[in-house]
Design a protein around this nucleic acid. Structure first.
Lengths: 107, 107
DNA sequence: TTGACAGGCAAGTAAGAACTTGCCTATTGT
DNA sequence: ACAATAGGCAAGTTCTTACTTGCCTGTCAA
């Protein structure tokens, strides 16, 4: 079982999820074509297939055989864990000055 | 600039964020100790430091020099992008049957 | 039945990520 | 001033990940 964090760490897999949100129930070849067209992703069929395996392993994509094709459905509910894990912002300590939160120190 | 998806892909970095949510404004040595105590993470100081660099590079952690210490503050607002990118669930196509969404095909 | 289409399996390669090792700088306390 | 504390820098190692390459298995249409 791959965890969802590793699954969405890859930009191509995020694009696959985007594509499935835009049009659910696509086959592998459809996804390859649309990823190339609308996302500028020129990965091979095998590469996309392996990405889909990772997404399915994380529970973000479910598949169903139809004939000689395999249809892919998104399921983004597992991503809700991210929101519940780090909700909005609940400051336990006072953030001191709100403005002076420089990312680096100044000389 | 590291993207937030790569940043939270690592389990140790997620534990660091958890730790900073529990107690904001910790130093590197404090984090090392508390990660070992409460999360069972036995990484070296340098490893944690490099993880903090990645988190800071993704904008999830801001730092401030205090004396000879460096205090780390969480900032989980960048994670809101994930929620806005894949909101709840908005089915564009009909999910067909709700129950029969088997992950794999049955013979 | 034959061939084209859709996809799967598995080994190998290559790039990147995590971690280590060794040494260096700056600040504080005595 | 000197030592201890808190951290930084950089090269090297190892392990993971993304991708390729080559071939094989089903399914449908003519």
């Amino acid at each position: 079982m791959t965890d969802i964090y590793k699954a969405i760490a890859d930009a191509t897999r995020r694009a696959i999820l985007d594509e499935l949100v835009d049009r659910d129930g696509q086959t592998l070849f459809e996804l390859c074509a649309r990823l190339a067209m609308r996302h500028g992703i020129a990965s091979s069929r095998q590469a996309i297939s392996q990405h889909l395996d990772v997404l399915a392993d994380a529970g973000l994509v479910h598949t169903r055989r139809v004939g000689r094709t395999k249809v892919h459905y998104r399921d983004i509910r597992p991503l809700e864990e991210i929101v519940t894990r780090w909700p909005a912002d609940s400051p336990t300590e006072t953030p001191d000055d709100a403005a002076g939160q420089g990312t680096e120190e100044q000389p």
